[in-house]
Write a protein that binds this DNA or RNA. Structure first.
Lengths: 250, 250
DNA sequence: CGACTCTTTGAGTACGCTCAAGGGGTGTGG
DNA sequence: CCACACCCCTTGAGCGTACTCAAAGAGTCG
């Protein structure tokens, strides 16, 4: 963990090519604004497992996740850990106006981030309403997701928690392939059992047991450790405890 | 519950007198902008227990809490409930650009709200960066609070949860009286045992038992059902499981 | 092949839940 | 003024879900 091996910087050549162009904090910017952003931006890459920022560290940049998955985690004095954010491509890291990171930020897969030096970014936000507007929209979405998550943490059973997480990942995977999640779905788990347990407020043993149980009940199939197949997405949804028709927010 | 008795509208006369003027969504507005806001605003009052908006209801306004406490709650099909937001004076309700409420909004005490008709408010946001900027700041704060709450829901014991809630309420009460929370503190519980259990992801019996336990251990004293005295705030903090020196975000 | 990481499974335990009964305060009606 | 109903809260007994501690299997890399 935290090996500082340098790996190729695989950021896009320019904003025009960027895979998150239409969803990230820069989504509403026009060409002129993108030119300004290009001047203060740089790419950084992190290996799976590497810590991007420690809680209470100074962070001199804000950033968008371009590819890969990162997490925000809080740790208690005695070591209990709770994941409080799951950052996917296009998600934003850092808070304008804040000096230090309030959470540990970790790359769970290899990650490429599009970073902006903080000071110039803050100055640009003041002149460029498009950025603040988009950031507000994204923050409101994150707040909705956090509240959905609070319901999961406070009220769902272990089995429902696992099913909910799998449903979220399946949905996300489907949306990357631009199709509706339905019928047979197959995707790769980007999280270890431990990361899942930190996400769900469980122990890793309970996560493992519940995944085995869902497999035995035919809700999911597993190839190797990480490749999940959901033969019937609706059956998975029934296990989440959520309203079957209600829309999900992640 | 939900009695539609009309009670006196006790909103301030004008924005200049408003007790939340410096903290609400209008905090950064200048006099000219306040005049515009006055044109689209109106006050509404709700009795303790009354539902302000049901989940999936159309909401034609957004609002600031002026006095009292309101809650946001999610309900699962089988009736399990989880509070996902605690709204205090100056907090903002509603999301610009969204038609329907995603949560039940309930007044737990008598509440006065400063409401803005949604459409004109959204239009004004486009012309008035001060509003969007302040709303972004408030939303980021709420997201931080939600994440603190996720740690509580996912990882804390029942005793720690109760202590954390009491600490939050004590802090808030102290800040209303413009002093630091330390030494002997006394305040009134604005929540029933049931509301506390919905907040903390517990049953009301467990809440009651843990409050009794804290009382037996001398961490708190209770007069009647709702008046709490904390003889030593630091001892209460030790029971929360949090870093004793780390700052809290609510 | 051995070392390492991640995962699975088992056995026993404990914390918080469920079900149940009863206490205390307040308001209403006889 | 008392009786009663109602709400909120407390306490008890037993149970079950998820945790703890422990051991071993599976996959990967050097």
């Amino acid at each position: 963990m935290n090996r500082t091996v340098s790996i190729p910087k695989t950021g896009p050549q320019s904003c025009g090519d960027c895979p998150i162009r239409h969803r990230a904090v820069c989504a509403r910017c026009d060409d002129e604004e993108l030119v300004q952003l290009e001047e203060i931006k740089f790419y950084r890459s992190y290996q799976a497992g590497q810590v991007i920022a420690w809680s209470a560290d100074r962070m001199d940049f804000v950033a968008s996740v371009v590819t890969g998955i990162a997490t925000l985690t809080q740790t208690m004095e005695d070591g209990r850990r709770q994941m409080v954010g799951l950052l996917l491509p296009s998600d934003f890291v850092g808070r304008p106006g804040r000096e230090t990171a309030p959470y540990d930020v970790t790359a769970t897969t290899d990650v490429v981030m599009c970073c902006f030096r903080k000071k110039p970014f803050e100055e640009m936000m003041l002149r460029t309403p498009h950025i603040g507007q988009r950031l507000l929209e994204m923050t409101l979405d994150e707040l909705d997701a956090a509240r959905e998550w609070m319901l999961l943490l406070g009220r769902k059973t272990a089995r429902e928690k696992i099913a909910s997480l799998l449903a979220i990942l399946a949905r996300r995977d489907a949306s990357l392939q631009l199709r509706e999640p339905e019928g047979v779905i197959s995707f790769e788990l980007p999280l270890t059992r431990e990361a899942m347990s930190e996400y769900l407020g469980l122990t890793l043993e309970t996560v493992s047991r519940q995944i085995s149980a869902l497999r035995k009940d035919g809700i999911i199939e597993i190839r190797g450790k990480r490749q999940i197949t959901v033969p019937d997405f609706d059956r998975l949804l029934e296990e989440t405890g959520d309203d079957t028709d209600g829309g999900f927010l992640v």
